[in-house]
Nucleic acid binder design. Structure first.
Lengths: 257, 257
DNA sequence: ACGGCAGGATTGTCTAGTCAATGCGGTCAA
DNA sequence: TTGACCGCATTGACTAGACAATCCTGCCGT
């Protein structure tokens, strides 16, 4: 029992369980066999079993609910549509066909808002074309659905633009921050979206109550006025298990047709 | 040394090292202290040290190069621009300001192509408005940059549309598969992009040679003709450590202005 | 009927060790 | 000089155990 050159036990355990999850013998929400059970079944030490399960946890397939056991993870993403701010119209009809499951219907929505003035983080300063250390206003929001944190949205504005405006008040802005900016003379007509895929920082894990093995989409949106001035940078952190990012595109500048 | 209620040692070790990575005392490419070294430094068993490092590996911050040691991971993402197929024009000028680092300049590009006819996977069938099990043509590509696998792109087409066309040949299509489809009378004018963020499957890990702790963006693009017929589903797997997804948007249907 | 408490099942943390696998550098022979 | 080989440092896999933490369940007393 001490020679290698085979696939490690932990890997085999992970593979077997993953297979069972894939083929449906274990459905989302089901409990996995207990560690003791697997220990017996495979004839290995508990530490090895745990390492096998650890693999699945880090793949986001399993969550542990101590001390009840390990469970197959459930995943129900919600649509995140960056375009909505410029084009609030509904999806193309074809969309419904495969997106009906992702809706916020009947769920209780809520958000916390916190406004402050900070030195622009390098990433933000770069996009707002400011020097490092210049001050910006930031509206930090955490959005909840049914009491669970759903995503983080931090919007940064050059301080001189929004000083004393409604944006500085830590309340819900009914007509939207973009409209307020427009009223101030900074209507955004273009935006650049960047989406990074990575593992969350510990801080994000805490703020969003993420379980291990949950990657996040890190969405940075920079809004520009007609004159090409960057007036807003919105950073959104989207837990991968709770979101689908969606865009619609149309062909432009047809060369033929 | 046997009472808990404190933060676990493994967590502390991970936190300390993460901190050092964040503040620059450990730069990308640097070697971490060896396990033996950390064992001594923290006065814990080697297993505990390993668990601490494991955390960072799963966060994508550290890679191990056995038996040389553990190293701080390097990350250089490349821009992925789904819009390019409909709008090959360059970025907005502002883009350069913070995207210059992400370019393929001077790197050797290559791809493998493999064409086959398969039963449509459920996910694809749904989007192509086919019944489960109907046949589709699929072009599977793995794209390499400097010999390293960079992303996977599988494009599915309803079999009856592309039968005997150039799309069925496992070669590079110089004018692009979309042009071939257009020549066949199925010009795409709209597309729907969906982007899921998740951990890779073991198969994806193998195909893309991903190191642990690398999440992927799972990009599904459905292309529609003028009549609203779905004629193409492209599934792209984007390793998070090697890509930024980018979109440009413009305000439409101005209500005011 | 109800509240609290004890015990049990289960996962979480950790120790102290063994042996395997691997890449690198240095030694030594051709 | 070159190539083969050996040893070493390091990480990888695993064992067998101990004790901690946590939630649930069922019992008991009021």
């Amino acid at each position: 029992m001490r020679k290698l050159g085979r696939t490690p036990y932990k890997q085999q355990i992970a593979d077997d369980l993953r297979e069972q999850i894939a083929d449906g013998s274990l459905s989302p929400g089901d409990q996995l066999p207990t560690e003791a059970e697997l220990e017996k079944r495979y004839g290995v030490a508990r530490g090895t079993v745990r390492q096998g399960i650890e693999i699945l946890i880090n793949e986001g397939l399993v969550v542990s609910a101590r001390p009840k056991g390990h469970f197959v993870r459930e995943r129900k993403p919600m649509v995140f549509r960056p375009q909505a701010e410029f084009r609030p119209r509904p999806y193309t009809p074809e969309m419904d066909a495969f997106m009906t499951e992702s809706s916020a219907d009947g769920r209780e929505a809520r958000q916390t808002i916190e406004v402050s003035i900070v030195e622009a983080p390098a990433e933000v300063a770069k996009r707002l074309q400011l020097d490092a250390g210049q001050l910006v206003a930031v509206r930090r929001r955490v959005r909840f659905l049914d009491g669970e944190p759903f995503n983080i949205n931090d919007s940064y504005f050059p301080l001189d633009l929004v000083q004393d405006s409604e944006i500085m008040r830590p309340q819900n802005i009914t007509q939207g921050a973009n409209e307020v900016l427009a009223d101030l003379g900074y209507r955004q007509v273009r935006a650049l979206d960047e989406l990074y895929v990575r593992m969350p920082t510990p801080e994000e894990v805490k703020r969003l109550d993420l379980s291990p093995g949950t990657p996040v989409g890190y969405h940075v949106c920079t809004g520009f006025t007609e004159e090409g001035k960057a007036v807003r940078v919105a950073v959104t952190v989207l837990p991968g298990d709770r979101h689908v990012v969606s865009y619609e595109r149309r062909r432009e500048t047809d060369p033929a047709s």
